[in-house]
Design a protein around this nucleic acid. Structure first.
Lengths: 161, 161
DNA sequence: GATGAAAGGACTAAACC
DNA sequence: GGTTTAGTCCTTTCATC
């Protein structure tokens, strides 16, 4: 069940990433396909797992979360971190990563006291480092299918990475 | 134009964060409101900016992006970083944060060579530290309106944060 | 906010290219 | 694999309670 995504699929994915509530009829108009054709393509993209879902995005500030933060956390027993992360509603994203810090965790909290409450639970497991998000420059970027030929070779003016 | 979100709104937000393609009729059934009532509430949530959009989520691996990474970057001229971030399609999220590292940037790339290409552009501006995402434990968590009374006071077994 | 009626539009399936 | 047609269903909108 692997995937060849053609130009039509690419346009469909772009439109649905920009507005998930488009009707199939409107989507068809935008990508210049008939309604049955787009419906079938979207169904295939869903069943192949290319499209994993449709989500409303919300303004966390308007929901009362005044602070967003990125927490880095060191090594700890994997299962314990997972359990904590899964049982903490303030966690928006949680990644297990390579490097000295094993975890990158994004949270949304009401205020500093709330931040303290959430961070303290984590730092009972391992050392942490918390950075408050000042400004979101780019978020939830729509992604097109990867094309190897778009990749430019690395050009390095400095020597380190 | 500020917002009091009651129990109905909270349920509506939960349903639409879980499935943005719900019809108003189905949404009404689920939250036990009539179609016109939910339609009006959703319209208000949109115009108040609580709901900021509706997005299809995609499987980046299936789109050909074999590697996701979190890059931390140090201080650099703000405008130059913004310009680079905005012109780099591999950037999924980019945050300006407090702390020694000024930037946390999430990217999706095809392979190690591609990773090198993207990282090298950034480290021409400032020092960077790249961590590859091994596993996504939690992602795009649905968020309910914040409720101060749910916040537990911090309990600290260790002494540091 | 609910109900009910009317109109418009969207989805499904079939036949055809 | 896409298009067109036809039929059915659903959604949306409006007026009324």
């Amino acid at each position: 069940m692997n995937i060849e995504l053609d130009a039509h699929d690419t346009r469909i994915l772009a439109e649905l990433q920009a507005d998930a509530r488009l009707t199939m009829a409107e989507l068809g108009r935008r990508v210049h396909l008939s309604q049955p054709a787009v419906t079938e393509r979207v169904r295939k993209l869903e069943s192949c797992g290319v499209i994993t879902g449709y989500r409303a995005t919300v303004d966390l500030t308007k929901l009362g979360y005044g602070i967003r933060a990125v927490i880095r956390a060191g090594r700890a027993e994997y299962a314990r971190v997972v359990k904590l992360v899964m049982s903490t509603p303030e966690v928006v994203n949680a990644y297990n990563v390579t490097g000295e810090d094993s975890w990158v965790i994004e949270i949304a909290v009401i205020d500093v006291a709330h931040l303290d409450s959430v961070v303290s639970k984590l730092c009972n497991l391992t050392e942490t480092s918390t950075a408050i998000i000042l400004n979101t420059v780019r978020e939830h970027q729509s992604m097109a299918p990867a094309r190897q030929e778009n990749v430019k070779p690395a050009v390095r003016k400095r020597r380190s990475a």
